[in-house]
Nucleic acid binder design. Structure first.
Lengths: 231, 231
DNA sequence: AAAAAACTGGACTATTTGGTCAGGAATATG
DNA sequence: CATATTCCTGACCAAATAGTCCAGTTTTTT
């Protein structure tokens, strides 16, 4: 996972945030972009637990420890904050998931995918939930991203998986459905955290819990695809 | 699935809706409980697409084709509507999922569970999304339900699965994780509908799509548990 | 050191919100 | 028919909301 991805020029920008007037573009000005980050962190917490519509700018400001008008100085309106967050999430997503080639080993590749995705759920549960909410609400902001970048991403991987199947390197399962399966089962540990914790009678996750869950998923899914579990 | 579950006395009630004054309890009065249903249907649509906080009573009223004050006559406040919906969802959930016994066949039982859950996602996607939102938001209303009824439900099933494992009737996998897996992967088709449709370049699901997905899940998950896929 | 730019925050506003209420219509009951 | 009960509704309100405005303060640049 690349860390400094703030100014990755390769990253596609989301559709332009709805601007009112031209307004002052907040430039990378010195040290006080710390505020910017604080605001975004606060906004992520608030949006991911209540959704866009139910979150008030005041709540974000309070959590960031700044007066409301100051928040609105950095992001001229609520939507802009939301767009900025979505953009960040999609950027991280793009950074994390490397390419796959037909000559790679199916088992280790899929296992690696599960692992990375689980790590994502563990370290960025808020982002995961924010994404989930956006999708459940009909993806008003990300709709285009879904049907372009993400669609292509899935179809490329699906084609490689299909090749693995055709060359007899794994069982015959629908590649796209397989990706859905990995996606949903890993996402679940972030999005439905409360449910899982309640069922497992725990107060919080440990790293070990995630490792256990990742191993479980790897075993079942790989075996389900007629693959030997690596290592 | 029992249809007339309106007055099932066995159904546990959710914690008492926050009542202001004693207020007129809307009695099963004659024919005009049609309105009640219309309101609930409208509320389900609105809540499930925007969450509780971002939905306005006016929107519900508009969708139900009634004046706001009339809506508030049936449900004295917004929370009451939400509680009523949650109650309905949990009731349906309880109705649908029958018991499992150690002497049942693991493969057909698990396959049946996947099938029923998928059917639920297909026929009640709004309810599914509403539930998902409630959980993502920290389950403010359902928290108790999760850590009592649902926890017990899962643990009972997990124990049966464990017996199947101990008697060598299926592979050794963590039963609770297995239930999470089935839950998440089936839920996904309702909650992340937009994402799936975008990726698969479709406008809407067909019954066939669901059948295909259900078969895929059954195959992979059962095989992943070292089971033969029935029929 | 002075000018320019970036930042801060209190006061303000137009609009929207959940919810109340008093009275009107419809229906049932005598 | 009268009258009591149930059902319905427009008008209303206090609270909250997103966003503006601007006078001042701090930081950066020159």
């Amino acid at each position: 996972m690349t860390e400094q991805n703030k100014s990755d020029p390769s990253r596609q920008q989301l559709s332009p945030p709805p601007s009112g007037q031209p307004k002052v573009k907040v430039r990378p000005g010195r040290i006080r972009q710390r505020n910017r980050e604080q605001i975004l962190a606060a906004a992520e917490k608030e949006f991911s637990s209540k959704g866009f519509g139910a979150t008030t700018v005041q709540q974000i400001a309070d959590r960031a420890g700044l007066p409301k008008s100051n928040v609105l100085y950095y992001f001229s309106n609520k939507k802009r904050m939301y767009y900025a967050l979505m953009d960040g999430i999609m950027g991280r997503w793009n950074d994390v998931f490397s390419n796959v080639r037909p000559e790679d080993d199916p088992a280790t590749t899929l296992a690696g995918f599960i692992q990375v995705k689980m790590e994502m759920s563990r370290t960025h549960p808020l982002a995961s939930r924010l994404f989930a909410m956006e999708i459940i609400q009909g993806a008003p902001v990300l709709k285009e991203y879904l049907s372009t970048s993400m669609k292509d991403w899935v179809r490329e991987r699906a084609m490689v998986i299909q090749q693995w199947i055709d060359t007899g390197r794994m069982g015959n399962v629908d590649p796209v459905q397989l990706i859905h399966l990995i996606w949903s089962s890993t996402q679940h540990y972030a999005d439905f955290q409360v449910q899982i914790l309640a069922i497992e009678e725990k107060e919080a996750y440990t790293k070990k819990d995630f490792k256990h869950a990742a191993e479980f998923l790897t075993q079942v899914i790989l075996r389900g695809c007629g693959l030997e579990v690596p290592e």
